[in-house]
Design a protein around this nucleic acid. Structure first.
Lengths: 224, 224
DNA sequence: AATCTCAAGATTGGATCCAATCAACGATTG
DNA sequence: CAATCGTTGATTGGATCCAATCTTGAGATT
């Protein structure tokens, strides 16, 4: 294992082993790529992965194909898979897409949010305050945002937004490392829930847009 | 082959056979799903596909995995792949996403469009007028739009837009069948190029938005 | 010294075989 | 007669083996 990364440890960290080995490998790799444990540019050797996960090369190959379709890997025929690079441009694009899509989802969702949805969102804000592990903050942040968009009634749009938030996780790491969690703008999160509870779409959207814009600016300043 | 679909003919239709069998199968299936030759809900049996394409089941499996990640198939462990359903809701979502993303890409692109880009766009408009095959119209329409967004300088955004346009092809079929090509709004296409040539971003965006809105309304009325 | 050639090793792509799971159907039992 | 439980065939998931391709490095050639 001269890759410089300990794949074997990774295998143990997935709690509930899914029904298929392929999915197991896919999840473990995806999580490790998203939170930066496997750095961009790392070549992924099928044999090494198979040994680390204690499966044959076939489920590994299927997992790699799926991750490629999710733009987390670059695949070249007969050469293999490499963890996709991250870049300031890619990060900026992610914010651009979020800025275009999330307000639409939020606006559609607000009228249909239930008291339960809003409570859950507030719980997630508290969870974020308490969570010590930076790696898990990305997931909590994502679930917070998604809880506000859940009632948008546009499943495809919501799935796409979730996908962007997941890809955003690759950059959130840097954001947190450089700015600290006090800059995660929990104030914005609170304001968003409040506006949503009051069914004030205009106010909610405006907070969300500013939230994304500020994050984009912060990140752009510190990335590279 | 009691599936009711002749996969064997499909195999012959891919001109330049790609380097890997997996990619070959993937392209053929994707094209057939997008233009409706394989209807939604069709179960895709690995063995049948392998026989039709004259390869083993393994490249078929890899192709299916990729198509699943592209949301063209629904995959259930130990049950297999089924062509993803289309629906009025899904179509509406596609327009919603396009409506949010394409104006951003267009606005960013306009200042950097070259004379060549604009000429190419105009050529594609003429091509659409001349193309007799409805199936190929989708590709031409997509290439027209993409030629206008090409200089946006946000590769990730542009890729995402292209993906939406590809998925839109699944519905364009119905659009054309019911409304005929005269309703493809070539006037809008011409107006978009003209506004882009004059670097009039406001006008260009407004035409594009109306273009998408009208298409969405037409489609919503006739689908189902 | 630089470049080209080509052979050996490494790595991926594909084929075949076996195991695990699911669906359908009939037998058994209350 | 309805419901449940095996059993069997069909289908997918996974392992192993072979073929094709790429990479690397030593040696020859200029």
């Amino acid at each position: 294992m001269e890759d410089g990364f300990d794949f074997a440890r990774l295998a143990a960290e997935i709690g509930d082993r899914p029904r298929t080995a392929s999915e197991f490998v896919q999840r473990a790799l995806r999580a490790a790529i998203l939170d930066g444990r496997i750095p961009p540019g790392t070549p992924l050797r099928q044999e090494a992965l198979a040994a680390a996960f204690d499966v044959s090369r076939m489920p590994v190959r299927e997992a790699l194909r799926q991750l490629e379709a999710q733009a987390l890997l670059d695949f070249t025929p007969h050469k293999g898979a490499v963890v996709a690079e991250i870049s300031a441009q890619d990060q900026a694009d992610t914010y651009l897409i979020r800025r275009a899509l999330e307000p639409v989802a939020f606006a559609q969702s607000i009228p249909h949010l239930t008291r339960d949805d809003l409570d859950r969102a507030e719980d997630l804000i508290s969870d974020m305050d308490r969570e010590p592990d930076h790696g898990r903050l990305g997931e909590l942040n994502r679930r917070f945002h998604m809880s506000l968009y859940a009632r948008a009634g546009s499943p495809k749009l919501v799935r796409l937004v979730e996908r962007q938030l997941i890809e955003h996780d690759r950059y959130l790491r840097f954001h947190l490392a450089m700015l600290g969690r006090d800059r995660m703008s929990q104030d914005d999160h609170i304001a968003m829930v409040k506006a949503a509870a009051g069914r004030d779409i205009t106010a909610a959207i405006s907070v969300l847009q500013r939230h994304i814009d500020v994050a984009a600016e912060d990140s752009a300043r510190f990335f590279n």
